[in-house]
Design a protein around this nucleic acid. Structure first.
Lengths: 373, 373
DNA sequence: CGCATTGCCGAAACCGGTTTCGGAGTTTCT
DNA sequence: AGAAACTCCGAAACCGGTTTCGGCAATGCG
């Protein structure tokens, strides 16, 4: 009876093939096998091929943890999500993660995720992740115009890739959507429908994209030969409530805008709220365009016209860029841009009133409502 | 000139304190230090305290990668997201991750995330993550009624916690929202407003929660003394489009429902679409209630009444449960339930028509519209 | 008081890899 | 032909931990 050879152990331990298994099968030392696989020059080409063949045949893949303690690299990408603005992350997070993990796992890497409560927290966490080799580098989502993470990681000499273009984007590796072009495109779309007064509701200026989108709006106006009215541009708008306030403000003008362009879909919600509250019909009385292509846009009625960013592709690109950067921190910077796709919706249409008529309409509706109270 | 002692290295290497540093400072061997910290019984209490004190003072924290190669544990939680249904994940993902990572990092653990394209893919990936010690156990989101992941992980003898109650939930550790209670609560809410015919649009029955919510709907009817009409219950509805179809179907009845209860907010979108298309006013002609508390619900007009699940809390609980389970796979099962919070919205109100009147109204509206064409 | 326990720690092997060093065998050059 | 230079691989140290084993000193017991 020799059947009691720990059959329980076998099922799990036998599964992984280690470098020692491989070296024994090849009658080489594990040092040689390691060098062969890692491209050291002091291994003959014939041996190298023999080793690689056997490694594939036996299904050998080094344990990244074991590698990490000597090399310092754990083959994992870091992503720290700042919760204070999680709302801003929610819509695109799933697709984004999909892209990232797809790129990572294609090369046997993994994604390590952490969340933080504040800016300082984020830096602490990133340092900790690097120190404990839970991450070799970082993807920086929602890049700020003047982002402390960039300065920090530069100082720490850690690899990173920005999702977005910061103030100094020329000196960083980044991936970004051409949102300025989208904003200009939106203006063109509205102008061709016949809109002449187009308002812009922009988000907090510490976000890098705010600058770009605002500039895109202005570029679009110029391109279409429309005059820029500073009163129609409201920035530093953080959430739907503030967007609603901004909407009321521009609709109270003597010559209100017949269309409102929003830096994000979330802000557009505020515009819708005011329209519903006032009784304005979106798509005829007032046209609206957002940006992000979020699920929210799908839930609004009429459908919000918006620009859909392929966040999965963005994640995949960022992951690949970061891995390259981890492998060689001195490689030339990588910078890539992608265009967002316009997704029309019922929220835009020909203006059925001039600005002056719209102003009267707004007043009449407000009188009606106060009479009902 | 002794200044060339690699000052660059120091800045990074000095940062981590290893067990060797600690043992030298204490004049002990690293073996002793390790046993002291890991609670071996052959260490005197005085030494143990001395070691723990010094470890804290020097800020020592073991490198989990180094531990992993010997112990097989990497102190990381695994989460595999199935992309084929990423839509279902998107809304609550950010909050959920927040809770998970918060629980994890509180104990120095991390979260490893992967995505998969299919069911078989998921199993492969989980095996791989365990084999390569990227994850010590798994959180299973969106548990299915008969979930292959459970059978698989049982077979692999790997720790896991379910988010949701499967068919055999009595034999698993789980965390879940009491969505059946919420559905009953929704029926009560509607019944007290005066609704007597309440339809139910349910999701795919392979999801564990579908069964619970449907049962909750029926329990609610019974509790309120309302008759159950099978024609008012439509299940296996996957997306807003199908929900729209279901809505048209029930509204075409001779005695249509004056309220529709949806298993998810996303399905409620389909109801809204049909209402808008037909010209029905939500909140008076037709009341709607959803479930999930997603951002979509906030974007609808009037606001969708829904049940908000605290996904952050869920994530935190699941993380803690999984860590406990990894530490001791033989510990008793942990099972916990949480109540979702009802979030009223303008989508419900007293029915201003009887079912018969509503049927006539629907017909009249449809005639009007066809006349306009 | 002597002997068997017990408590407590050091020494060393080990985990699965990487990297340095040195030397045996071949080739090249004079 | 002999020295120098290469090629290529084995041996062994190393990374930062964990775990087994063995032994010394202090204790318990008769």
């Amino acid at each position: 009876m020799r059947s009691d050879v720990k059959p329980d152990r076998r099922s799990r331990d036998n599964a992984r093939v280690t470098i020692t298994d491989l070296s024994q099968a090849l009658s080489l030392t594990k040092g040689t096998v390691s060098r062969a696989l890692n491209g050291y020059p002091d291994i003959s080409e014939t041996t190298r091929i023999r080793v690689i063949r056997a490694a594939q045949a036996m299904g050998y893949r080094p344990l990244s943890q074991a590698q990490a303690i000597k090399t310092g690299r754990s083959c994992s990408l870091g992503l720290v999500i700042e919760l204070s603005e999680h709302d801003a992350h929610a819509p695109f997070l799933a697709e984004f993660l999909a892209g990232l993990t797809q790129a990572a796992s294609a090369e046997g890497w993994t994604l390590t995720i952490a969340t933080s409560e504040s800016e300082g927290d984020t830096l602490r966490i990133m340092r900790d992740l690097i120190l404990h080799r839970k991450a070799d580098g970082f993807i920086l989502p929602r890049v700020l115009w003047d982002d402390p993470r960039i300065a920090f990681l530069d100082r720490e000499n850690a690899p990173y890739i920005c999702y977005g273009r910061s103030k100094n984007h020329a000196e960083t590796s980044y991936f970004d959507a051409l949102s300025e072009a989208s904003m200009a495109e939106a203006v063109t779309w509205l102008a061709q429908l016949g809109h002449e007064r187009i308002a812009y509701i922009g988000s907090a200026s510490h976000y890098a994209y705010s600058h770009l989108r605002r500039d895109g709006y202005r570029a679009g106006l110029e391109q279409e030969g429309l005059v820029f009215d500073p009163a129609l541009m409201i920035e530093e708008v953080l959430d739907p409530e503030e967007a609603a306030k901004a909407t009321r403000q521009v609709l109270a003008m003597a010559r209100p805008p017949t269309a409102i362009l929003c830096a994000t879909d979330t802000l557009a919600r505020g515009v819708y709220d005011v329209a519903h509250e006032m009784g304005l019909k979106i798509g005829s009385d007032l046209s609206v365009i957002g940006y992000d292509g979020s699920p929210e846009a799908q839930a609004m009625w009429p459908r919000l016209a918006t620009f859909a960013v392929d966040n999965r592709k963005a994640g995949a690109a960022l992951g690949a860029m970061l891995m390259a950067r981890v492998r060689d921190l001195n490689a030339p910077l990588q910078q890539d841009l992608i265009a967002a796709e316009f997704r029309p919706g019922g929220s835009t249409g020909r203006p059925d009133k001039t600005p002056e008529e719209l102003a009267h309409h707004v007043i009449r509706l407000s009188v009606d409502r106060s009479r009902n109270d």
